[in-house]
Amino acid sequence: MTYRLVVNGEPAEVGVPGMRRLLDVLREDLGLTGTKEGCGEGECGACTVLVDGEVVVSCLVPVCQVDGSVVRTVEGLAVAGGSALAPLQAAFLEAGGAQCGICTPGMLMAADAFLAAGAEPTDDAIRGAIAGNLCRCTGYTKIVDAIRLAAERRQAGAGAA
């Protein structure tokens, strides 16, 4: 079967079995290895991507279910044609939100969806938004700090505009 998706703004067409995991399509068929596999059973969140704006674990989504969908991965976050970090990525870098980096792509996608939803960036709300993304390095402290920083900058930017 041929499936058509839009990945990070670019149309993509893959001829693969329908039950292939979206994760494998991204990593192996499209060469987008930024999305990571940590457990293959939807527990760790390392493979989190956005499908039509919603967070999903791409290890549990067969490609047949995303035919025609818009998929966003960590490779699609950077701005200015991919040459500059997005504000969320910059906040992670400054706050120390990435250590070993393997949970980071999924964590960023969960955080990106949280920012896009525009919820108040309270500690509890941020922690709830990343509860499906395991991190073993940071104790989550600086990840929460980074997301709050990005949300506050976003709000300040929106206020100024």
Binding site: R27, L32, T33, G34, T35, K36, E37, T73, V74, E75, L77, A78, G82, L85, Q89, F92, L93, E94, G96, A98, G101, I102, T104, P105, L108
Partner: peptide, 18 residues
């Protein structure tokens, strides 16, 4: 800033399976 941070934050860092 973390030296390899940008690569990790953009998905460009290459882990073994990558």
């Amino acid at each position: 800033l973390r030296r390899e941070g940008p690569a990790k934050l953009t998905g460009q860092a290459l882990y073994t399976d990558d």
